[in-house]
């Protein structure tokens, strides 16, 4: 136990400031938290759906939970059910074999039902394109609010995309 506490103390807090989202300058965690509360009235709950990705984007979404990006510290968390989610983070070209599952997941999400398409494949089908097995872009299957290009997009870009989708939700209200 002592060695665990010692290491926690030695490493300290490595969390870095959150990125800007579009026009806004780099934001402090408190500002983002307040903004999310203003807009949603609660913490932002995100459900990640891999609709056909190579798993590269998932690695970067995972990274958002590491102490550097500290997503939960900003008032956002990944949830296990679409019914608990405000936002879907969708990766991959949508495969034909995942199409129904993605549509049903989208239907299960309550309002505001934000959708962020993460990665080049989710944006346009990427290198896989459209075929007998792939529908390509996520927007071919469900409505998309924000697209985050990149192969895979680094964690900060994904975070930026999440923040701009939240800001869009303010406009929609």
């Amino acid at each position: 136990m002592f060695s665990i506490l010692q290491r926690i103390a030695k490493v300290g807090n490595v969390t870095e400031p959150a990125p800007d989202a579009g026009d806004e300058p780099q934001q402090q965690a408190q500002t983002i938290q307040r903004e999310i509360l203003d807009i949603l009235g609660q913490a932002l709950a995100i459900r990640a759906v891999d609709a056909g990705s190579c798993n590269g984007c998932e690695l970067e979404i995972h990274a958002l939970n590491n102490p550097y990006y500290n997503l939960e510290g900003l008032g956002m968390k990944f949830v296990a059910s679409p019914r608990h989610a405000d936002m879907l983070l969708v990766t991959g070209p949508v495969t034909r074999n995942m199409e129904i599952a993605l549509v049903r997941t989208f239907e299960a999400v309550p309002a505001p039902k934000l959708v962020v398409a993460v990665g080049d494949c989710a944006a346009c089908g990427g290198i896989f394109g459209e075929s007998y097995a792939s529908r390509g872009a996520v927007s071919n299957v469900i409505p998309v609010d924000v697209v985050v290009p990149g192969c895979p997009p680094p964690p900060l870009e994904i975070l930026r995309g999440i923040l701009s989708a939240v800001q869009r939700a303010r406009g929609l209200r």
């Binding site: 056909g52 991959g92 495969t95 896989f128």
Partner: peptide, 11 residues
């Protein structure tokens, strides 16, 4: 399995 079959080998 097979849910993320995206036709790589045809591509």
């Amino acid at each position: 399995l097979g849910y993320v079959h995206k036709g790589i080998e045809k591509r």
